[in-house]
């Protein structure tokens, strides 16, 4: 564990019975960085994001460790040092309490302050996320807010106690491009304002490119590639990362067909002994089907791929 890390994840494993959905993840989140976790549905990114806050499904078994700086268990610091922006802003707020009351309750759940003080902090947080006339709006119910305002209120809720780490789980999935940009800008501003690191879980590589400092690319519950965004997305070394990037429609000359990855991501529990990506990987050799590759440091990032040493960059040309 690097001493400056705000949050350290070491060999995290999450299993449902005999089926492992997260299969040995290790990474640190550094102060004030935007750390993206990217992957396709079923890769385990949402499970991982929630495990960072000590939220795991009841029937799951968790191994490995997640620790905040100083060794604290994040579950005990949830809402205080680490907070969640959940995926669905509409269902994240109680429909039967005014928004300001919900924020004030969040304040009083972690701080011994007067109702009046909690109220003032709630209004200040709403004001900070750009809710107009925040003192009055604090008395309104979620159904009186527009969709965009509810999204803002949820972000205010996550930042009201000035946490060290904000975990945002697909905060922009259901939004169109304009709103997506607005929400991401708001998250960035709020992160700046309270001095927090942001863990941004997304399936959208454009969001990663535009907003993150470092990225963890997950495939089938493991890290395929982990490192600075400009290296990982600019010069991918894991075939999965490269294939994913190649499959994105790009600006530039139009192509009638995109270089699509064949097949679909594997279901947890349906994995062979080898690299989980091997059945879809155009570079796979016999060894890839036999052993799971271990992460290794290559070219300023970490890559889990047996072929990383013998396939030169840019590997896109080999796909």
């Amino acid at each position: 564990m690097r001493s400056e890390a705000l949050l350290s994840v070491c060999d995290l494993r999450i299993a449902f019975g005999a089926v492992e959905a997260v299969r040995g993840l290790s990474f640190d989140v550094l102060p004030r960085e935007v750390f993206a976790v990217v992957g396709e549905s079923g890769a385990g990114k949402s499970l991982t994001a929630r495990a960072l806050l000590g939220i795991v499904p009841r029937d799951a078994t968790v191994n490995g460790s997640v620790r905040l700086r100083g060794g604290a268990d994040p579950a005990a610091e949830r809402g205080r040092r680490i907070a969640l922006v959940p995926q669905d802003a509409l269902s994240a707020l109680s429909p039967v309490h005014p928004v300001g009351d919900q924020l004030a309750a969040a304040v009083r759940s972690v701080r011994r302050v007067s109702r009046k003080e909690a109220r003032a902090r709630a209004v200040a947080a709403l004001d900070r996320v750009g809710i107009p006339d925040a003192a009055r709006r604090a008395r309104a119910y979620p159904h009186e807010y527009s969709g965009g305002m509810r999204q803002r209120a949820v972000i205010a809720m996550a930042t009201v106690n000035e946490p060290d780490v904000v975990v945002a789980d697909e905060p922009t999935t259901a939004l169109d491009e304009d709103r997506r940009e607005r929400v991401l800008r708001l998250l960035a501003e709020q992160r700046e304002a309270v001095g927090a690191a942001l863990v941004l879980v997304t399936h959208d590589l454009d969001v990663v490119r535009d907003h993150a400092d470092r990225v963890l690319v997950m495939y089938a519950g493991r890290a395929a590639e982990l490192g600075p965004v400009e290296r990982v997305l600019g010069h991918p070394r894991a075939p999965y990362t490269a294939g994913l990037l190649a499959a994105l429609p790009q600006d530039g000359p139009r192509r009638r067909r995109l270089p699509a990855l064949t097949g679909t991501p594997p279901a947890p529990g349906a994995l062979g002994p080898g690299c989980a990506f091997a059945p879809r990987c155009p570079l796979a050799v016999a060894a890839c089907h036999e052993d799971e590759p271990e992460p290794q440091a290559v070219d300023g990032r970490t890559v889990a791929c047996h072929r990383v040493a013998d396939v030169p960059e840019p590997i896109r040309e080999f796909l």
Binding site: L248, A260, P265
Partner: peptide, 14 residues
């Protein structure tokens, strides 16, 4: 759809 699957469906439509 996920990115790696989206390209396949776009190709199919083409």
């Amino acid at each position: 759809l996920d990115a790696s699957v989206r390209a396949g469906v776009l190709n199919l439509l083409a």
